[in-house]
Design a protein around this nucleic acid. Structure first.
Lengths: 124, 124
DNA sequence: TCCATAATTCTACAATACTCGAAATTTGGA
DNA sequence: TCCAAATTTCGAGTATTGTAGAATTATGGA
C-alpha cells in the first residue's frame, strides 16, 4: 500500500461514526450485518449511515452484498491487513534485536480464514 | 483505548504529511530523529513541520526530547500498540475457528524491547 | 557578551468534508 | 398490479482543519 492510500484510509476511519461502523463489522465477521441493523445499533439517521457506508466502501474497507430486500455489509479483512502491514513495515528499520516481535505481527496479521485464503490467492 | 480516542488518533495519522513523519519515526526506532532531519527528509517548511509534530505529540503518538541544540523526536510504540489492539479487539466476535490468527496479533503487537518492557510495567 | 543555528509561535487565508431532511429508488409480497 | 419496507440520492448549511510566511524564543560556542 502506498502512503497516500494509507493516509486516505486512516483519515476515513478517523471519524467516530465511521470507525464505529467498521468496528461493528470487524466484530461481526465475514457474515456481515444488515444496513438497518447497523443504523439501529449506532442510532444513525439513514442518510448519514449510507454516506458513511459509501465512503468506507469506496475505500475498499467494507463490501456490500444484497440478500433479498436488505443489504449486508461486511469488513474487508484483506484491506485491513494491508493497512496494518503498512503501519508496521520496516519498524525500527528492521533491526532484529529491537523489533522482532513487531515484524512478526506484520506477517501474522491475517484475519478470518476465508479472507486469509483470498489474500493468498490474490498474491499469486 | 476508547473509540473516540482511537478515531482521533486515526484522523491525525490520516494526513499524508503527518503519516510520513510518523512512519519515519517508526522506522528510525527508539533513538529518534532530529526535527531538522525530519524537515529535510520530507521537505517540509519548518512551521508546518512543527505544527504537525505538535499534533502528533499531543496525541501521544510521538515523544520529544532535547539533545543540545536540537530536538529529537521518536515514535511512541506503546501508543501504536494500543491503536492496533483497538482495531483488532474482538475481531470476528472472537470466534476461535475463524479468528485465532488475529487475536494472536493483538497480544503480540509489542514493538521494540524498551517499549515492550514499559508496557509490561504499566500493566502491573 | 554576542552571534548563528534550531525550532517554535502567531496569524490569517483557503479548502474540504460532515450531517441530515426530503424525495426517489428498488425489492418482495399480497 | 400495487403497497410497504429498506436503502440510497440529492442538496445545502456549518464547522473544522491544514498550510506557511514572518517574527520570536532558546541554545551553544566564540
Amino acid at each position: 500500500m502506498e502512503i497516500n492510500e494509507a493516509a486516505n484510509v486512516l483519515s476515513l476511519l478517523g471519524l467516530e461514526g465511521r470507525l464505529a461502523i467498521f468496528r461493528l463489522l470487524v466484530r461481526a465477521g465475514p457474515r456481515g450485518v444488515k444496513a438497518g441493523d447497523i443504523a439501529g445499533a449506532l442510532s444513525s439517521p439513514p442518510s448519514t449511515l449510507t454516506a458513511n457506508l459509501n465512503v468506507l466502501s469506496h475505500a475498499g474497507l467494507i463490501t456490500r452484498r444484497r440478500d433479498g430486500r436488505m443489504i449486508l455489509y461486511s469488513a474487508n479483512f484483506g484491506r485491513m491487513r494491508e493497512l496494518l502491514a503498512f503501519l508496521l513495515a520496516d519498524c525500527c528499520n528492521g533491526e532484529p534485536d529491537i523489533c522482532v516481535p513487531l515484524m512478526d505481527v506484520a506477517t501474522r496479521a491475517t484475519c478470518c480464514a476465508s479472507d486469509a485464503a483470498e489474500y493468498e490467492e490474490m498474491k499469486s
